[in-house]
């Protein structure tokens, strides 16, 4: 009898876990981090924001119309994160869109734009939070785009495009998950095994949903980039994503 209850409980928990995780993606919830760590992650994010902001100010100064472009790009990232994508596990989930954004607009711009998107997500949909904005920005608006952009920059002339895009975006998604696990592990080290055990623990919790999700996002972004190449050559050219023929 007792065994049955345990099995039932585990089943219910797994269901809840699988159901609630994807909806909230990788956001650290409001108030989840202790104040010290919340501050630390803000401090980590500030240099990147300053750099991104300088870049944006210069862009807007040179081309005033970039304002509209950036506003729409941010809205695009926001709406994309609200889009339901099919996951390889069969359920559906939401892409982070950071990889695509970084390829299209570059990591400096993405660090500021991504943070704004996170702020809007916190204020409009209660995903993430104000005090944890720093931590979320580091994992989603800074590290993810940086990795996607580096992979893209290093290989996009050498390997077939679909392969590079796939790796850039799935790695960006995966790195987001690794950084979030790291943040949680640092804030809540395990009572027995310390930081390493805690990292392993949070890592496994997230791995259940996040690895298939990274693959899905990779596939989806490859398809989007293909479609963009067919339909939006001129626009991509203006943004400087593709060089050559056009």
């Amino acid at each position: 009898m007792r065994n049955r209850i345990v099995i039932l409980l585990v089943g219910v928990l797994t269901l809840v876990l699988l159901e609630s995780r994807p909806a909230y993606a990788m956001h650290v919830m409001e108030g989840f981090l202790p104040p010290l760590w919340a501050l630390v992650w803000f401090a980590v994010a500030i240099p990147f924001w300053a750099f991104g902001l300088r870049k944006i100010t210069r862009l807007v100064h040179e081309q005033p119309e970039m304002r509209m472009m950036l506003g729409l790009a941010g809205a695009f990232a926001f709406v994309l994160s609200a889009l339901k994508i099919p996951s390889v596990t069969g359920s559906s989930s939401h892409p982070t869109g950071t990889g695509l954004g970084a390829i299209l607009f570059g990591p400096a711009v993405m660090s500021v734009l991504g943070t704004l998107v996170l702020l809007f997500q916190a204020l409009l949909m209660a995903h993430g939070g104000l005090t944890t904005l720093g931590a979320n920005a580091v994992s989603m608006a800074i590290v993810g785009p940086l990795i996607a952009w580096s992979v893209w920059r290093l290989f996009h002339t050498r390997l077939p495009m679909w392969l590079v895009v796939f790796f850039a975006t799935s790695l960006a998604n995966l790195s987001t998950y690794v950084v979030t696990s790291l943040q949680l592990a640092l804030a809540f080290p395990d009572a027995v095994g310390g930081f390493v055990a805690s990292f392993a623990k949070f890592g496994t919790i997230f791995a259940v949903t996040q690895i298939p999700l990274a693959i899905s996002e990779g596939i989806l972004t490859v398809l989007i980039m293909n479609a963009l190449q067919q339909n939006a050559q001129a626009e991509l050219h203006t943004l400087g994503v593709v060089r050559g023929e056009n």
Partner: peptide
């Protein structure tokens, strides 16, 4: 989804 994403862009 891919068509949707690219059209949205």
């Amino acid at each position: 989804s891919a068509m949707l994403g690219s059209q949205l862009f």
